[in-house]
């Protein structure tokens, strides 16, 4: 038998699929799996949150360290304002406790267990009771919607998915981590909008007009100090967006835009000195 060499045509050992097509397919598959898991767990959290009893929320809250509260006079004023707002609120926020904290940032927080904190810097810059009421009613909206339970639940979901990814390649973490975070932030922006609407409804029901609703966000928007990241990287809607949708809601739903603003009490600018 004579040996006749022949060159081989083609290559059966290497698949012909284009690597970029493979990349798209695999990325799509993994993203789909992770987002499906995130959405399913997210829905489970949203479904269970209304059934979580108040006592359990307080137990959870007890494990979270609370900042020390200062400026009792201001806190007392906020507490009374909260009680009058609660009478007109569309959703029951449960019992809330108000506090004031020292912080360089203009901000207000709702924490689990119905605790709402204002920073001193915010209180110093507030122009009227209406503006303050809008912010307070927004935070009470978070309490009524039980948004911190939702965010704790979502946080656990994220931790779970993250632990699932820990044993995979670093690169996969880089790729999937941000996608979950984006989903998370989008959810957070929705909750903020809901709280804004709750705040607006309460404001209009209490004062009979929507004056002061947008002042805080306009001020934040004009402030150069706060650099705004792009929408998809923010946990809150952009301030100018909030101003415009609040104004739209005011005009369309409530038909009441401006009215006389209630001034803050005379002693408002007197602060206890920083305790050592």
């Amino acid at each position: 038998m004579k040996y006749v060499p022949k060159p081989l045509e083609g290559n059966v050992n290497v698949s012909r699929t284009h690597p970029l097509k493979e990349l798209l397919l695999l990325c799509g598959g993994v993203l789909g799996l992770v987002l499906a898991a995130y959405l399913a767990l997210g829905f489970a959290v949203d479904w269970i949150v209304p059934y979580v009893p108040q006592e359990l929320e307080e137990k959870i809250a007890a494990k979270i360290p609370m900042p020390p509260t200062k400026h009792k006079r201001h806190a007392e004023y906020l507490q009374q304002l909260a009680e009058s707002l609660a009478e007109n609120a569309p959703n029951d926020a449960g019992s809330v406790t108000l506090g004031v904290m020292e912080m360089g940032e203009e901000n207000a927080f709702a924490l689990p267990g119905g605790r709402i904190y204002f920073t001193r810097r915010l209180l110093e810059n507030v122009g009227s009771e209406n503006e303050l009421a809008m912010i307070l009613a927004h935070e009470m909206g978070h309490c009524a919607n039980r948004d911190h339970l939702r965010s704790i639940g979502r946080g656990l979901t994220m931790a779970l998915l993250a632990s699932f990814l820990i044993n995979s390649d670093d690169a996969v973490e880089y790729f999937i981590g941000p996608s979950i975070t984006l989903g998370h932030l989008s959810h957070s922006r929705k909750r903020e909008e809901l709280a804004d609407r709750h705040g607006l409804e309460t404001l209009v029901a209490t004062y009979g007009h929507g004056g002061g609703a947008t002042e805080f966000f306009s001020r934040i928007n004009d402030n150069e100090e706060y650099k705004h990241p792009p929408k998809y990287l923010s946990s809150h809607p952009a301030p100018h967006k909030r101003v415009s949708y609040l104004e739209e809601s005011l005009a369309e739903i409530y038909g009441a835009e401006e009215g006389e603003l209630t001034p803050l009490p005379d002693w408002w600018d007197e602060w206890e000195e920083k305790s050592p």
Partner: peptide
């Protein structure tokens, strides 16, 4: 390597 690591799923 990234493609291969996605394959592991």
């Amino acid at each position: 390597r990234f493609l291969a690591s996605l394959r592991f799923f």
